[in-house]
Every structure is written in C-alpha cells, then in structure tokens.
Design a protein around this nucleic acid. Structure first.
Length: 184
DNA sequence: CGTTTTTGACCCGCGC
DNA sequence: GCGCGGGTCAAAAACG
C-alpha cells in the first residue's frame, strides 16, 4: 500500500490523500488498494496513447484480482475508451481505488453529480458515473462493485480538479498527516 | 424552487 | 454497414 505522508506525493494529485482521509475517518471502511492507470500520458503529443489504450496495465498491488488485465483486455472494463473527452482539455490522470466497503457512496471531499448508470458486460454489477459538480470542473469518477468480491468497491477517478476540495483539510485531526489538497 | 437522481435514448469507436 | 459495448445526455421525477 503506497500512501504518502507529508507533502510530496509521487503524482500531482491528491486522491491518495483524500482517500486516506476517508479511510481514516470511516472506521467501517478499510482501504484496500489503489492503482495508477499508467496509460495516462500527460503530454497529448503521444499519438500512441490511442493505439495502446487497450493494453493499459491496471493491476492492484495484491495482484490477486484480475480486474482488467491480460486475457480480458478486450473488454477491459476500466479502460474508458476514450476518445471521449480527453480532447476537450485533456482528462488528466486516472486512478482507481479498490475499497472494502458496504457503502458505495463515499465522501471524498468533493461534490459529485451522478450522470449515468450502466450495467457492464463483464460484471453483474452496475457502474455509476459521476461528474464533479463544481462549475467548470470536469473531473469524473465511476464507481462499481468488484465483480469478484462484492464487498469491494472500485472507484476510478479521472482528471484533475481545477479547484480545491470544499472539504479541504488544512488541519488534519491526525497531527502527523498533512493532506496536501492543492496541486498544479 | 434549485439541485440531484433516475433512466431510456443517443452517440461513438471498434470489430466483423 | 451493422451490432455491440460502453459513455453521456437530458427530461422528468424526486429531493430537501
């Protein structure tokens, strides 16, 4: 599990921090894993990103759940196909969390507006689509239950907020943890 | 009464 | 071109 304390996360985002915050503040939620979808390239220049999208490597740290790798890459369900919106301003990084939780709606500090719900082929579970409800911010997230283990919830974030979390923690209740919720 | 959810329709890329 | 899978729109309903 790679969470970063202090203010130098490896990636210019604060998802880990928020999720950690969430996990710490919700006793019934045990954070299990997170992954970085490494097909993301922060330069639009790489045209290859399109052709390699289907081969994105998305693996959980424990590597025990074939969430979307290898054999099933054809219907890789975390791969958002994207041609979608990346063009409009670039989506930014995608990162997925796998969280053991009974609740699928978790407060990560941002306000989200649900804009879609879909059943996906490879899973009996529904996938929910959310968009950040802050004006001008097009960060999206999608939430679905792990098809293998129903007690896990998979949350995928896409993009970078252009604003601070309304829930920004300037002072953490846990003194040694600094949540750096700003970036860029 | 403004905001969010619901839900089917619509759209788009891709493989055949 | 068509169908499928998956993502988004949008109108109406629900919510507070």
């Amino acid at each position: 599990m790679d969470f970063y304390f202090g203010n130098s996360p490896p990636y210019p985002n604060n998802y880990a921090h928020n999720s950690l915050n969430m996990a710490l503040s919700s006793p019934e939620i045990a954070l299990s894993d997170y992954l970085m979808l490494d097909d993301y390239v922060d330069h639009q220049d790489s045209r290859s990103s399109q052709s390699t999208e289907s081969s994105e490597k998305a693996t959980f740290n424990d590597a025990t759940h074939g969430f979307s790798t290898g054999a099933t890459s054809k219907n890789n369900n975390i791969n958002c196909k994207n041609g979608i919106n990346e063009n409009k301003g670039g989506v930014g990084p995608r990162i997925a969390f796998r969280t053991k939780s009974e609740l699928e709606i978790m407060d990560d500090g941002y306000k989200w507006r649900k804009y879609g719900k879909k059943s996906v082929k490879s899973s009996p579970n529904l996938r929910n689509y959310y968009k950040c409800s802050s004006g001008g911010c097009s960060v999206k997230k999608r939430v679905e239950r792990d098809r293998d283990d129903y007690s896990y919830v998979i949350t995928t974030y896409e993009g970078v907020h252009n604003h601070e979390s309304p829930f920004t923690t300037y002072y953490s209740p846990i003194s040694f943890v600094h949540f750096d919720t700003t970036f860029k």
